[in-house]
Design a protein around this nucleic acid. Structure first.
Length: 224
DNA sequence: TAGCGCGAAACGCGTTACTG
DNA sequence: CAGTAACGCGTTTCGCGCTA
């Protein structure tokens, strides 16, 4: 006998509508909608039904849910052509110009986070506990790192010469973003902007590498 | 009859706002 | 400043109508 019933796979009208709504809501508000908001928009009067559909979408692999957190849902699959997003915490601001004092003893203050598509990442860095810093200053301008950009870093203790790193200068209580070179009598922190002089660290001063830059998110100023 | 699609309402829990 | 009321939100339970 013929049936017009939905197959167990495949999406019904409401599934589609919910997905579209989540997507557009997310674009507008930068976070997912609540169950009640979905219901309201999709003409579903009961939260249990929305939950019911979200469960199904999750089973279909179109949605990920985190039940610990309210609004804990995320679209996956073809809805995001770039692939999964990785949330990277922005731990604070780092100087790429003259190094300056930083507010707390850890060197960084938690602030915000950015999402980057894993498909854009160097594959070896995936899954590491990366962190991000907002760049202030222009000493790395020739390395395509500008004031206001965000750099993604991998936490490391050592770096090879020529790598761009975030370092903590113990004796000076300062952080800075520079190219790293180890030399006979200490370290040289080289800016990429010829207008800035390298910072020379003598052997008796200590320096702590916080991480090396694996990716740069450029800020494009469209207002001038 | 069993299972699905759906709705109403109660419930639980964390956060925010108010108040003495 | 503690106590509590209000709120936002997700989860659970129950029940109804339909159909295979």
């Amino acid at each position: 006998m013929m049936m017009m019933v939905r197959k167990s796979k495949g999406l019904g009208e409401r599934h589609q509508k919910i997905l579209e709504f989540i997507e557009s809501y997310q674009r507008e508000y930068q976070h997912p909608p609540s169950i009640r908001e979905i219901g309201e928009h999709c003409k579903i009067s009961s939260t249990s039904v929305v939950n019911y559909y979200l469960d199904q979408l999750e089973k279909e692999g179109l949605l990920e849910r985190d039940r610990k957190i309210s609004r804990g849902m995320r679209l996956v699959g073809n809805n995001n052509p770039l692939g999964d997003l990785l949330r990277v915490p922005v731990l604070g601001v780092i100087q790429a110009g003259e190094p300056i004092l930083v507010p707390d003893e850890a060197g960084f203050t938690p602030e915000d986070s950015v999402e980057i598509a894993t498909s854009l990442m160097p594959s070896k860095e995936k899954g590491k506990d990366l962190f991000a810093l907002k760049v202030q200053g222009e000493s790395m301008i020739d390395a395509m790192v500008n004031d206001g950009d965000i750099v993604i870093l991998k936490p490391v203790q050592d770096a090879r010469n020529g790598e761009m790193v975030a370092v903590w200068l113990n004796e000076r209580s300062e952080t800075t973003l520079k190219y790293y070179y180890k030399e006979k009598d200490g370290y040289r922190l080289q800016p990429a902007n010829p207008q800035f002089k390298p910072i020379l660290i003598k052997k008796n001063e200590s320096l702590q590498i916080k991480g090396k830059v694996v990716m740069v998110i450029r800020k494009v100023d469209r207002y001038n």
